[in-house]
Structure formats: C-alpha cells, structure tokens
Amino acid sequence: MTDCGCDKAKAELEEYLHDELAKADAADIAEHMANCDDCTGEARIGIVLTQAVQRACRETAPADLRDQVLLKLRTLQSH
C-alpha cells in the first residue's frame, strides 16, 4: 500500500464512508487517514453528516400534516 494523499482521500471520502470502494483503495485511504489529522477530521464530519441524514430519513411526518400536504397538492394539480 502507498499513501494515497489528501486529494484522493478527500475525493473518495464519501465512497469510503459508505464502504463502496475496492478493498485496496479503502486500505490506502485508511492508511492515509491514520497519519493525516486533516483528513481524519473530514472523515469525522462526514460520519456525523451521514448519521444525521440517516436519522432524518427514518422520521415521518405526522398524519395530519401529510393529509394537509396531499390535499394542497391535489388542489394544485386540479387547476
């Protein structure tokens, strides 16, 4: 493995965090982050953002709000 550098680590960070990289590329990025505080900080931010989005996607609107929105959409579509 060779140190991939900050540019590659930051460019592929999202794929790395979602475990979407080939094993060799993921290992290169992990090795780089083990020695780079800046990229490790970027990864931590990415993790927090990913977790926040995942939590938000699990939330549902209250039934009355859904009904109001659907009624408004139907009204707009009928005009």
Rank of each mutant, 00 (worst) to 15 (best):
R44N: 14
C57Y: 13
K23R: 14
K72F: 08
E15Q: 13
T60V: 13
A27F: 06
A22W: 01
A22N: 13
R74A: 10
C4S: 11
A56K: 15
I45H: 06
C4Q: 03
K8H: 12
V53M: 13
M33Y: 04
L71G: 04
G5N: 01
A9C: 05
M33H: 01
D19A: 12
R55E: 15
D64G: 01
K8A: 12
R55K: 15
L76W: 05
L73R: 11
A26I: 00
A52R: 15
A56P: 01
V53C: 05
A61G: 03
D19R: 13
T2G: 03
A9R: 01
D19Y: 01
D25V: 07
M33L: 12
Q54H: 09
E31T: 07
A61F: 07
D25L: 09
A26E: 07
M33K: 09
H18D: 08
E42P: 01
C36K: 07
Y16M: 04
V48I: 14
I45V: 10
T2D: 08
E14A: 07
T2F: 07
A56C: 06
V48Y: 14
C36G: 06
R44G: 10
Q51R: 15
E42M: 15
A9V: 00
E20L: 13
R55Q: 14
R66A: 04
A24Y: 03
S78D: 07
K23G: 08
E59C: 05
A63Y: 03
D7E: 15
A9M: 02
L70D: 04
A9S: 13
K10G: 00
A26G: 10
A56W: 08
Q54R: 15
I47N: 05
K10V: 01
K72Y: 06
G41E: 14
D37P: 01
C36V: 04
L13K: 12
I45G: 01
Q51N: 13
A22Y: 07
C6Q: 12
M33S: 01
A30T: 12
C36N: 11
E14Q: 13
H79R: 15
Q68H: 02
L71D: 10
A56V: 02
C39L: 06
C6V: 09
L71Y: 10
K10Q: 08
P62A: 11
D19G: 06
H32W: 07
D37M: 12
A63H: 02
D67C: 00
D19T: 09
K8D: 10
L49A: 13
D7F: 04
L71R: 14
G41V: 06
K8Y: 09
A63S: 05
H18Y: 11
L17A: 04
L49M: 14
R44Q: 15
A27K: 14
R55F: 14
T50D: 14
